[in-house]
Design a protein around this nucleic acid. Structure first.
Lengths: 248, 248
DNA sequence: CCGCCTTCCTGAACGTGTTCAACTATGACG
DNA sequence: CGTCATAGTTGAACACGTTCAGGAAGGCGG
C-alpha cells in the first residue's frame, strides 16, 4: 500500500499513466474505468474468434483468457453475437482507409469501383472462415447485426458513402436519375459480392476475385448504356421499381 | 393349434395386419416400423414451430408432445435444424403442385413466371415468422440446409425444374444461349425474392408482391431485348461471366 | 471518517441443444 | 423354442449461452 490511508489525497490519484488527455469526464459516467475492460474483452474475443473460430470460442474461454468473470462480458455486451458488431465496425473503417488512396488519385469509374471492391475483399480476407459463421447471425432479419437493421445504420451509411465517392469522384457520364440511385445500388451489389465471398470455398476465394473482375466491366458498360435511348424505358422501369419496393 | 411346433413354419407368419400391400420389404431395413415415429416427430415439430416459433420450441417440448424421449428425435434427425429439411422438402412439393395448373394452361412467359413466383410466396406465407428464424440456419454456407449445399441438391434441382418448365412451356423467343441458362438464372432470382420476402416486414409482405409484379415485366422485357443486336456483346459478357464464376 | 450511490464485477444457477451407454422390441435363423 | 443381430428407444449427463442476486470499488457530500 502507498501514501496515507487517513487523509483523502487531494490529487485524483493517477498513478503512472501517460496523461489521459482529452477525456470529457461526464459527471454520472466518470472516466473510462470500464472502457478499458470493454476493449480488453473485445480484443480477446476477436483474437480467439480468429484463432479458433466463432462457434468454437466459448464465452467462458473469452472471460478466462481476458482474466474476468463470464458475467462481466455480459455487462458490456448483450450477447456473444454482439461482440461481432465490434468486428463489423473495425473492418468498415479499414475498408474505407484501404480504398482512400485509390479514390484520391484514380478518375476512371470502372477502376475506382474495381479498386474499392478488391480492397473490401482484401480487408476481410483474414476472417473468411470466421465470417462464414458470423454471417449466420447477420442473416437473421431480426438481428441487430443484419446489414439492413437500424443498429447497423451508421455502418451502412458509411459503406454507402464509399460508393458515393466512387461515383462522384469519377469522370463517368450517367443518366442523372440513375446517378442519384447508383451509390446505394453499388452498395447492394457489394452486399451481393460479400454474400458470394462468404459462400466461396475456392482456394484464396479466387472465384470472388474473378466475379469482381468480370462484373465491373459489365456494370461499367451498363452504366454507359443507361444514356442510350432504346434503354430509357427499361431504365425508368428499374428505377420506379426501386422506389416502389423501398416504400413502406 | 396347427402343425408341428418342432418344425419351422413354412409360411412367413404375418399376424393380423390389413395387408401391408406394396411394401418392398428390404432385407436389412425391414418394414417402416420407425418411419411412423419419424413422421410423428416431424409433424409434431413443424406444428410447434408454426405455433410457437422455431427458437421457442425446445427439443424437449417436441419429444414430450410426440410422446417419445428426447434422444429418440436425435435418432431420426441429426439436429434441431435438420428438422427444417423436412419443412423444406414439403414446401418444395407444395410449390410445384400450386404452380402446376397455371403451367398447364398459360403460354405467355411473363404470366407463367409471375404465377410461379406468387405461388411460391403463397405456399410459404403461413411460415413467414418461422422462416425468418430458420433462414438463419440456411444462410450458413457450411450448413446442409444452405440452398447451395450438396444435401439440398435434390430440392434445388426440383426447384430449377419448375423454372425450366416456365421457360420451355412458354411461347417466348429468346437468344438460344440465354435460353439454356435461363432456368437457373430465374431460380437464382427466385432465391433473391425469397431473401427479400424473409426480410419483408410490411403487412402481408405486400412489398414482396409488389417486387414480383414490378420485376416480372422487367425480366420479360430484358429477355426480349436479349435478341437485340446492340445488346449482343453485353449478353455474351454476362453469360461468360456466369461460366467463369461457376467454374471451380 | 462515515454512509451512500453508481459503476463495475463475480460465480453459481438455469434452460438449452446434444450425446451416449444402456435397455427393449422385432424379426431372422437354426 | 432359443439365440442373436439389428433397429428402435430411453433418460441422465454434458457443455454451452445467458441470467441474476449479490458483492467490491471508487468517488461524493457530510
Amino acid at each position: 500500500m502507498r501514501s496515507v490511508p487517513t487523509t483523502p489525497a487531494p490529487e485524483p490519484a493517477e498513478p503512472a499513466e501517460p496523461a489521459p488527455a482529452a477525456e470529457p469526464r461526464v459527471p454520472g459516467r466518470s472516466r473510462a474505468r470500464g472502457e478499458q475492460t470493454r476493449q480488453l474483452i473485445l480484443d480477446t474475443a476477436l483474437r480467439l474468434f480468429r484463432e479458433r473460430g466463432f462457434a468454437e470460442t466459448t464465452m467462458r474461454a473469452i472471460a478466462k483468457e481476458a482474466g474476468v468473470a463470464v458475467g462481466n462480458a455480459y455487462y458490456y455486451f448483450d450477447s456473444k453475437e454482439h461482440l461481432i458488431q465490434g468486428f463489423y465496425d473495425r473492418n468498415q473503417a479499414a475498408h474505407a482507409a484501404a480504398a482512400a488512396p485509390l479514390l484520391a488519385s484514380e478518375k476512371d469509374f470502372a477502376a475506382r469501383l474495381r479498386g474499392v471492391l478488391h480492397a473490401g475483399i482484401d480487408v476481410n480476407a483474414p476472417y473468411h472462415a470466421f465470417a462464414a459463421t458470423f454471417f449466420k447471425s447477420a442473416a437473421e432479419p431480426t438481428s441487430p447485426l443484419s446489414p439492413f437493421s437500424a443498429e447497423s445504420s451508421p455502418a451502412r451509411e458509411a459503406a454507402i458513402a464509399i460508393f458515393r465517392d466512387v461515383v462522384e469522384g469519377s469522370s463517368v457520364k450517367v443518366d442523372p436519375e440513375l446517378r442519384r440511385e447508383l451509390p446505394e445500388l453499388l452498395w447492394l451489389g457489394w452486399m451481393g459480392v460479400v454474400l458470394f465471398w462468404v459462400y466461396d470455398r475456392s482456394p484464396g476465394q479466387r472465384r470472388t476475385r474473378r466475379l469482381i473482375d468480370g462484373a465491373v466491366p459489365l456494370v461499367d458498360r451498363l452504366v454507359h448504356l443507361s444514356r442510350l435511348r432504346v434503354l430509357r424505358p427499361a431504365l425508368r422501369q428499374v428505377l420506379s421499381l426501386l422506389e416502389l419496393v423501398k416504400a413502406d
